[in-house]
Amino acid sequence: MKGQTRPPVTQETLLTKVAFNVNGKGQELQLDPRTTLLDALREHLHLTGSKKGCDHGQCGACTVIVEGRRINSCLTLAVMQQGARITTIEGLGTPDKLHAMQAAFVKCDGYQCGYCTPGQICSAVAMLDEIKAGVPSHVTADLRAQPQLTAAELRERMSGNLCRCGAYSNMAEAITEVGRTA
């Protein structure tokens, strides 16, 4: 495995072993414990689809799905993800075989520069599951009722993913389309 050889193991470097599953494939890495999950993916496994926009949990570009839940991969250490099942944008679909959410983003032009896009898509996929699971949001009127995929719910729940190009309105259409048929 190509990524495992970097960074080089020097005598002074205290490396910690971690194993997890990324997109269905087991990965075992020796990492500087300071390595975030995001940097492990991007710099060690060369899965650069997850983006670093802020590295401080302020933009959502690094969103990946861990154990079925979306998280900011910049704010967790790789060594904290021992045994975890991780899905990144590369695990959802490929250019030749797009995931339904990826296809809907293309169709609805739910992106411009493309940098926030993988995070938006991972977030949207997991967000639809959160609604199904009955997780309430800030705009859920009745806390005890099953939340619905309304425009307001979708926009509130996606608010942890910034898009400076301002493709929000189109993303809402893409996500609604997928949510309705899912």
């Binding site: 979306r70 998280i71 900011n72 977030s123 949001s137 800030h138 806390l143 942890g160 993913n161």
Partner: peptide, 27 residues
């Protein structure tokens, strides 16, 4: 999302979902 919290301690449920983002609340 806990059913008991939503039923009996709604203010807590509301406060939680007013904070941060979906991703951060998962962590």
């Amino acid at each position: 999302a806990d059913e008991r919290v939503r039923r009996d301690y709604g203010v807590l449920s509301r406060a939680l979902v007013a904070g941060a983002s979906g991703q951060l609340r998962n962590m």
